[in-house]
Design a protein around this nucleic acid. Sequence first.
RNA 1: GGCGGCAUAGCCAAGUGGUAAGGCAGAGGUCUGCAAAACCUCUAUUCCUCAGUUCAAAUCUGAGUGCCGCCUCCA
Length: 477
Amino acid sequence: MSLKLYNTMTRQKEEFQPRENGKVAMYVCGPTTYNYFHAGNARMFVVFDMIRRYFTYKGYDVRYVQNFTDVDDKIIQRGHVEGMDPLALGQKYIEEYFKDAKALNLLPATIHPKATEHIPEMIKIIQGLIDTGLGYAVDGDVYFAVDQFPNYGKLSGRTLEDMKAGARVEVDERKRHPMDFALWKKAKPGEPAWESPWGEGRPGWHIECTAMSLKYLGAGFDIHGGGEDLAFPHHENEIAQTEGYLKGNTFARYWMHNAFLTINQEKMSKSLGNFFTIRELLVNSPGEVIRFYLLGTHYRSPLDFNDQNLIMAQKGLERLQTSVRLAQEAMKREGSSKKEGSHEELLKAAKEARKAFEKAMDDDFNSALAYAALFELAKTMNANVQEDPVPSHGLAEAQKTLLELGDVLGFDLLHPAQIQVENDEILTEVMDAVMQIRSKSRQKKDWEMADFIRDVLKEKGIVIEDTPQGARWQIKK
RNA sequence: GGCGGCAUAGCCAAGUGGUAAGGCAGAGGUCUGCAAAACCUCUAUUCCUCAGUUCAAAUCUGAGUGCCGCCUCCA
């Protein structure tokens, strides 16, 4: 039952050993809130949400911290463009984040700290770095001296020499080393600013994660995650400043990075402008479909985004939802099968699905492989659901397992829309009447009328299906 | 220039030494007044190319080709 995960730091899969028995402390880099988040960001959120859920399933008490970068150059720039106070803009998109997160069924983090609420903690760390010679102030800016930190580059597997050779950026003359990065930025007039020992300014990008992760998780916490583009420079710099501040103690024990979402094989990014926000995608696709699509590929493989893939995901998810629906309908029917064989087959299938599911997820969270376990179970359920009488006992267990495992991946296979319909008394009564009328037509072999009713309702998004046990209907958008 | 990743059926996608999961699409069949759903059967002698290691390779090694990412803000 051991769980293996790929650690970017060591470039191999390692057995997960928590810092503290039975507990997992993880920090995931959250969004910079200057816009709605896009599908690429969503992949990261969904992947780590899935990881978090699986740890919980395994019995760990998970403390999950995801920050909001609510002050930074892009927010200031965007605020300027929109004629809005940058800090207010940052808050606005924090609120919008939660709307989209809900649609994707992302669990709220244990703590969602904001950069702007942790300035004093950051100043303290920066001061500590200056005191030990790892940081230096120049004209109101403060930089981290990378050549004073022995293992700079250990996460991304490069050396200062490598980077010097490949430097593509104009070097700020005031820096002691070209790769030195900002811990504190002096404010220009009109920019959001906080008082500090070096004058008015704002924190550099990396320092917030150091301050907030140390505050809420403490040194040497278990997992630090993010998109693979964060490995360098963001996480590299976090390691340097944090372990420098901690006098060499380990910052985080496992580093996890998800691969990108691509569009036409190219990285989807705000910089390239080739992105879709989740808000836009939600107009045509339910959040659960987007989620199903995002987890259908292992998190460390690139995933190409297009409409066809989204449609395939929708069909796949519907298959699982249909299976649950069929099982529920079957169990409502009278009687229970005497045939032990069906019970046995279902119980065995449930057991094997769980086993295969766990095996897949234990191997570096292979959600794509875990899907196969769900589909196999659904297939066995479907094959037994038509039996009359119904093997209720085995079916109930199988359905329970399918729902539970689906939930671990963040899918509600009970199909919320359907539940809503069932709670709508008027709709249910009207539909009962319509179904009776159609049933009469069919008894009189008035196929024209029966088909007409079916066609009209289909246009309204209500699908009627005739079965040996009678007709049934469901909402399908 | 430095560092790293990927290449599996029409499409998506698992599989890292033992003889190709799963999904979507497609074909045939069962059921059905028809339709839908579901079920059954079929759909990669083969995993970018070439060479090598091995009893055995999609999996390991080397060379090559193609695509992508990081090195600058980026999930």
